[in-house]
Design a protein around this nucleic acid. Structure first.
Length: 228
DNA sequence: GGCTGATCATGA
DNA sequence: TCATGATCAGCC
């Protein structure tokens, strides 16, 4: 696999992102000598990793944004033939334990979503993985209204966690932001508090953006696949 | 286990 | 048909 240099500026990153619009995953993978899996059943994050490698994201960075020096988080998003999202978008792990004093302003959710480079990728399962094409990049920052939408859901969900109601939270809570399990499998367990304030073991959870929210973003920036 | 990257697959 | 809950892989 060829290692890409880290983009120094935002415009350099955008130029690189625009340069792959219209190309297939096969083309992009070949250009950096990355082996292609037959499908995503065994490597669900492969598309994200491919784009990350191509754009020169800080590989292995942890709680930081992908391009921390630019203040930008990278997200690939699978879209259907109409350009609408096929999946929800993972944002960050939900803090179940040491969450005293966390506010929206200091939350990981707000930090990760402060500036996002969205890369739409054809995700229709009837299209072979190698033939799926990448769309034009979207550099997005939440509008005051969007931030308010996220903040409201985040507050409601965090309130439930702090009250020990983690087991009562389902993916149906929250209008734009939801909490769902996020783990290697059903055996993965982590600590949380129940309503009596006792420690319990529960499945790790993550914050996800619902499709309705990411649809707004894609529609606003009028994403279309660029045909070559 | 817990973080990164996400999509799969089944029940409603 | 589609969203929820479950799951996959790699790193530390």
């Amino acid at each position: 696999m060829k290692i890409q240099s880290i983009p120094t500026t935002e415009s350099e990153l955008m130029q690189r992102a625009k340069s792959i619009a219209g190309y297939s995953l096969h083309d992009i993978a070949q250009s950096i000598d990355l082996p292609m899996p037959p499908d995503l059943k065994k490597q669900k994050g492969w598309v994200g990793q491919l784009i990350e490698l191509y754009l020169g994201a800080n590989a292995g960075s942890k709680a930081e944004q992908d391009f921390a020096h630019l203040g930008i988080e990278l997200k690939t998003i699978p879209i259907n033939r109409s350009g609408l999202p096929l999946e929800t978008t993972f944002v960050s792990v939900a803090p179940l334990l040491s969450n005293h004093g966390i506010t929206w302003q200091s939350s990981h959710v707000k930090y990760k979503l402060s500036k996002v480079l969205w890369i739409p990728v054809e995700g229709d399962r009837t299209i072979a993985l190698a033939e799926r094409r990448v769309g034009l990049p979207i550099l997005w920052q939440p509008s005051p209204q969007q931030e308010q939408q996220l903040k409201q859901d985040w507050q409601e969900l965090m309130d439930m966690i702090v009250l020990g109601q983690i087991e009562k939270i389902t993916a149906r809570h929250g209008e734009f932001l939801q909490i769902r399990p996020k783990a290697a499998n059903g055996k993965a367990l982590t600590q949380a508090y129940n309503e009596s304030g006792e420690l319990i073991m529960t499945r790790p959870r993550g914050f996800y953006l619902k499709k309705q929210f990411t649809s707004q973003i894609l529609q606003h920036y009028i994403t279309n696949l660029q045909i070559r």
